[in-house]
Amino acid sequence: MDGILQAARGAFGLIVSGDAALAEIVLLSLQVSLSAVALATLFGLPLGAAIAVGRFSGRRAAVVLLNALMGLPPVVVGLVVYLMLSRAGPLGGMGLLFTPPAMVIAQAILVLPIIAALCRQAVEDAWIEYEEQLRSLGAVGLRAALTLVWDIRFSLLTAILAGLGRASAEVGAVMIVGGNIDGVTRVMTTTIALETSKGDLPLALSLGIVLIALVIALNAAAFLVKEAAQRRYG
């Protein structure tokens, strides 16, 4: 118990003092996770909407596959991205391995199915409600999909937040493709894993507290935005 209290005191000390190393790690973590979520959102929302509204052979298999991919193991994704970006891999020439962009790619691959699958479900539910009206107006296919995505955009915030939760909590993939290099690719989750194994519990705990606080703050902000928007747009 004393050990936990000591670690907690140390953690609060680091946070309050504005430790430069801690701030650097937090900033890089935010950059990587937010970039990955932005990338996954860019491709995931249209993909989810297209599967929701589209009627094509193999659609049901695509839905099942998309849902299954939500449970992609991060270490497997990390390994595959590592193989692609390693010097002997097809994209090795780009020199991205052990850089933040590699971590963004790995996290985006993990997050994309989550955003796409949740978007697909939300758009499909909306399509049931809107279909006749949109078809009557002549809005079908891509136009209908984009209309639905825009109309339920505040509900889709939840899907994006779920993706952000996955990205910010992920450790396996970024550890493999980033290498956890101090000052270069060290993020909150990899630092927590490293410092815990080294026995530096105050730093690990302080990062844990910051990580949880950030996730709560982002979710609270998104919730407030959603509420304000719903009041305004109905």
């Binding site: 409600e129 006749e132 009206q133 009557s136 107006l137 809005a139 136009r143 209309t147 109309d151 747009y233």
Partner: peptide, 21 residues
């Protein structure tokens, strides 16, 4: 339709949407 389906935007924007389509 019996139950009007309105897009989540202003009344004016709903009519403009139909014209846009």
């Amino acid at each position: 339709f019996q139950r009007p389906i309105m897009l989540r935007r202003s009344a004016l924007a709903n009519v403009i949407y139909a014209l846009e389509v």
